[in-house]
């Protein structure tokens, strides 16, 4: 076992492909986080989106329709989340956890009663059209194939970065979470911005689900997101809701996961599975220490 079998082009490719699931969900999560709402329910939104994408793509025979279905379902979930949290002031965590459980149960129920299949969606007739693949030639003996959604997610990161930090809407969105009263004092409604945040959250989670069922895999399976949404939440916290930082955090997670998996020959396989989570804890410790140092520095100045 040498290092090249752990760190190679395949590892990087693997990192980018799997991280895209987390990146898209993270983008959703950070939109609601910017508006001061912690949406723990993104995992459920992803599952619902993945299901809608697979069914839409199969029914229409077009991946584009599949993606639109996923986005639509994500938007619905986002609206519902917004109404519950902004209008009825319900607890965001409870709603989020409810989403996660509800989405898994609902998709499983529909799969079994309407499509009469259990476990995964394998239609007898027709096929699930998947997102197009981009072949970027070979590097180091590995063919580089990436799903269309991967570069799309990068474009989205750039757009969101501009939206959040270069447009008034981004500032308002942030203010609606941080200082809703000051936003109100300039004649803007913080509620509207919060609605915008939660709807956009649903939209990106839907996209993440679509990538999961039409890009990374080519079918829907029950409980497909497999708690990847929580990883996204951790990335958002670590990346302080900044799209570029969240992107880097997701890549770091993906890399730890991919490299850890390839280390199974050296380390016990049950231990390698814990690597991403050990990574999370280390990151949080690092974050806490850095914050403390900042606070101390501030105290020293005054």
């Amino acid at each position: 076992m040498d290092l090249s079998s752990i760190f190679n082009v395949g590892t990087l490719l693997n990192t980018f492909n799997t991280a895209t699931i987390v990146i898209l969900a993270g983008l959703g999560c950070l939109m609601s986080e910017q508006a001061g709402m912690m949406c723990i329910g993104i995992d459920g939104m992803m599952t619902a989106g993945a299901f809608a994408a697979a069914v839409g793509s199969w029914y229409s025979g077009s991946w584009l329709v599949g993606v639109l279905c996923a986005v639509l379902v994500g938007l619905l979930f986002g609206c519902f989340y917004g109404v519950m949290v902004v209008r009825y002031h319900s607890d965001e965590f409870i709603i989020g956890v409810a989403f996660n459980i509800f989405a898994v149960a609902l998709t499983t129920f529909i799969l079994r009663t309407v499509f009469l299949q259990s476990g995964s969606f394998h239609p007898a007739t027709g096929e699930i059209k998947t997102l197009p693949y981009l072949s970027l030639g070979a590097l180091g003996g590995t063919n580089i194939n990436i799903s269309l959604m991967v570069p799309v997610s990068w474009v989205l990161i750039a757009l969101l970065q501009i939206f959040l930090y270069r447009t008034p809407y981004g500032i308002w969105l942030h203010a609606s979470g941080e200082h809703p009263d000051s936003l109100r004092s300039v004649g803007r409604s913080p509620e509207k911005m919060k609605y915008l945040g939660s709807v956009l959250c649903g939209l990106f989670c839907g996209l993440s689900g679509a990538y999961l069922s039409l890009g990374y895999l080519s079918t829907f399976t029950e409980n497909m997101s497999a708690e990847r949404g929580y990883v996204a939440v951790a990335c958002v916290i670590f990346g302080r809701s900044n799209p570029v930082l969240v992107f880097l955090a997701a890549l770091l997670f993906g890399f730890i996961d991919a490299a850890g998996m390839r280390m199974q020959g050296l380390v016990d396989p049950t231990l390698t599975a814990a690597f991403p989570y050990v990574g999370t804890i280390l990151m949080m410790v690092f974050l806490a220490l850095r914050n403390q140092r900042k606070l101390k520095a501030k105290a020293g100045h005054s």
């Binding site: 395949g10 590892t11 693997n14 699931i21 399976t221 996961d257 199974q264 049950t270």
Partner: peptide, 25 residues
Amino acid sequence: VERQYANTYEDPAKGKECALALYNG
């Protein structure tokens, strides 16, 4: 003969990662 454990029986995405690691290797 190389082996890779997914640590789950229910997550095809994880299975794909494992298999890709083997194919790349």
